[in-house]
């Protein structure tokens, strides 16, 4: 198991809360929705997956997209595989996205450049992720900048 998450349930709990916030955010949500893609994030340690649908009409009112915790029926446009620890640091703004890919820490497939669209869009959420961890009582999971 990795450094930050004890199991997939804990990861789903945190990412579910985080994505709930991001996909209802009126500043970030519309920009994410504009990308019009379905992304599957495949995590290791713990092994699990999350799919974010920014292509179809959101299932819930007030959301700019739909996310699925665990396997889902949708065919993704692009997939991204990484360790849960790497993802955790990424959402703190502590991982260089170019280095992540070129060093093989993140593997991607499908319409890779479509993912590029989302990079500048999600940057403002880096400040939000530690705040959300604190709100959820997971202050111990906040990664400090060295």
């Amino acid at each position: 198991m990795g450094e930050y998450y004890r199991d997939a349930d804990q990861l789903f709990e945190i990412y579910g809360y985080f994505l709930d916030s991001v996909l209802q955010n009126d500043k970030i949500g519309p920009k994410m929705s504009k990308s019009g893609i379905i992304i599957k994030f495949i995590y290791t340690d713990p092994d699990c997956e999350i799919t974010i649908d920014l292509k179809n009409k959101p299932e819930k009112e007030g959301y700019y997209g739909t996310f699925y915790l665990g396997p889902c029926h949708l065919k993704e446009d692009v997939w991204s595989k990484q360790s849960a620890d790497h993802s955790h640091r990424f959402w703190h703004g502590l991982e260089n996205p170019i280095a992540s890919v070129t060093r093989g820490k993140v593997k991607q497939g499908g319409k890779i450049t479509a993912m590029l669209k989302l990079l500048p869009v999600v940057r403002p959420t880096f400040g939000e992720f530690p705040v959300i961890l604190k709100e959820m009582g997971y202050e111990d999971l906040i990664v400090k900048k060295k």
């Binding site: 996205p97 170019i98 890919v101 070129t102 991607q108 319409k111 890779i112 450049t113 590029l116 669209k117 990079l119 500048p120 940057r123």
Partner: peptide
């Protein structure tokens, strides 16, 4: 190479999105 794949898919302009970040 991921460099080649990115440049082929989106050209040098792909640096715009990364550069914005």
């Amino acid at each position: 190479s991921i460099v080649s794949i990115s440049l082929n898919q989106a050209g040098t302009a792909s640096a715009m999105e990364i550069g914005m970040m």
